[in-house]
Design a protein around this nucleic acid. Structure first.
Length: 379
RNA sequence: GGGGGGGUAGCGAAGUGGCUAAACGCGGUUGACUGUAAAUCAAUUCUCUCCGAGUUCGGCGGUUCGAAUCCGUCCCCCCCCA
């Protein structure tokens, strides 16, 4: 697809990490990048102007949720997600594969697809590779995902092997069903859990199918950081250098740094926005729970080192007050901060890579935030 | 002056002889959250403590093996009539 490609701009001589420009039908974005999640065609509480202000690149939305409400055909008839949402950013839609995982109580996986009861009214529904792609074609995102099974962790090798093979067949079916390859980049998703041979098999098979980008899935499902990094290592080594690599569902600071070191270009995570709504902030002073009594009379900024709108204009005491009163402005302001915090991290990461000092940068960041490479919450 | 209702933990409110340190809600405190069924969820919230112990249900005094619950009395609050 001529409208979509990754232009590698620099490879860090110190670490091997890379920066790039991802060209999309809705503009260029710099990698490595962090993508805010807006499942229901909205990054919860943020206006398009605020999304722009935090310097966000790609934003996410979700096949399953928009299929249920308002319906993908309505989004299509509205002119597609960009018009519907009034955003200029490139958009990526997830395939619904993760929802199959999280709705596992009421699902049945077959070769054809997944039968499940939806979470709104319990209706029995069927999502298949073809259906997922069809919905995503209607939604009109710049980047769309293959319909995969996101297997639980841990899973036996036997289970994982069958799951990977099925997901690969689903990837081919989705590719065959894709109606808009000229303006929507369909990514393949590497699975295989923590098993090196299955990750290799999954990655190699997908690469043979030739996708414009590759995701690493089956992550952020309860595995330790050590396992996560192995999953990434086992997957990335088989992926072509000139295609974007997307580590799905990962968004803590430590994992972003470790991921970039391993050659990841794209990250997404609900963590920053969700914990923000719940009163927890990522900051250069460490983790902050703004509801804590100790901030009652703290009239200083949330994070003096942060350049976001919230930190430039509001005090901890006021933000605490808003959150405790369940005021939407509080959830908005804290979401702005956490997203900007992570996006600023990716800006710093890109600069460090371009200056061939990413390894130093990562080590200093870990030292400053008392992180380690194995198990850390990362903020 | 007459008649009626009521005082339970920070607040509201159940309980009306033992299973009650006392439901539930709010408020308070703390924690969790990773391709969003999440403005959600969990723990904790009389006192001292490790199990455990000690004081509670307006005050005081009784009945009883045992009382927030029964009786007497006092204090306070609300409503209606004069």
């Amino acid at each position: 697809m001529e409208k979509f490609w990754l232009e590698i701009t620099h490879e860090c001589k110190q670490s091997g990490a890379r920066t790039g420009i991802l060209h999309t039908p809705h503009g260029d974005v710099l990698t490595p990048m962090f993508m805010p999640v807006g499942t229901l065609a909205t990054v919860k509480f943020l206006s398009p102007e605020e999304i722009e202000e935090i310097q966000s690149g790609v934003i996410l939305s979700n096949t399953y949720h928009l299929w249920l409400r308002p319906g993908d055909e309505i989004v299509r008839d509205a002119g597609g997600l960009h018009t519907f949402m009034n955003v200029k950013n490139p958009i990526l839609t997830d395939s619904g594969g993760f929802q199959v995982f999280s709705l596992s109580d009421s699902r049945k996986i077959t070769e054809e697809g997944v039968t499940f009861k939806n979470h709104l009214n319990g209706d029995t529904m069927m999502l298949s590779p073809e259906k997922s792609i069809q919905i995503q074609n209607n939604l009109g995102a710049d980047i769309i995902m293959s319909f995969d099974e996101c297997p639980p962790f841990p899973a036996t090798h036997e289970y994982m092997k069958a799951s990977v093979e099925r997901t690969l067949r689903w990837a081919q079916r989705g590719k065959d069903a894709h109606q808009r390859p000229h303006d929507q980049a369909l990514f393949g998703i590497v699975q295989g859990g923590e098993y090196e041979d299955l990750r290799e098999y999954s990655a190699k098979t997908l690469v043979d199918m030739d996708f414009p980008g590759y995701s690493i899935g089956g992550t952020s499902v309860g595995e330790t950081k050590e396992v996560l990094y192995r999953m990434v290592d086992y997957s990335v080594k088989w992926l072509p250098k000139d295609k974007p690599r997307y580590l799905m569902g990962v968004g803590s600071t430590d994992a972003i740094l470790e991921g970039v070191l391993r050659g990841i270009d794209m990250f997404d995570c609900v963590l920053p926005t969700r914990i923000a709504r719940h009163g927890t902030l990522m900051s250069n002073q460490g983790r902050i729970n703004i509801r804590n009594a100790k901030y009652e009379r703290d009239f200083g900024p949330l994070d003096p080192e942060c350049d976001c709108y919230t930190c430039k204009n509001y005090s901890r005491a006021y933000l605490r007050h808003l959150i405790r009163c369940d005021e939407g402005l509080g959830q908005r302001l804290l979401s702005i901060h956490n997203l900007r915090f992570l996006i600023k991290l990716t800006e710093d990461i890109r600069q460090a890579i371009n200056e061939d000092r990413f390894l130093d940068f990562k080590n200093e960041y870990f030292k400053k935030h008392k992180l380690n490479s194995i198990d850390s919450r990362g903020f």
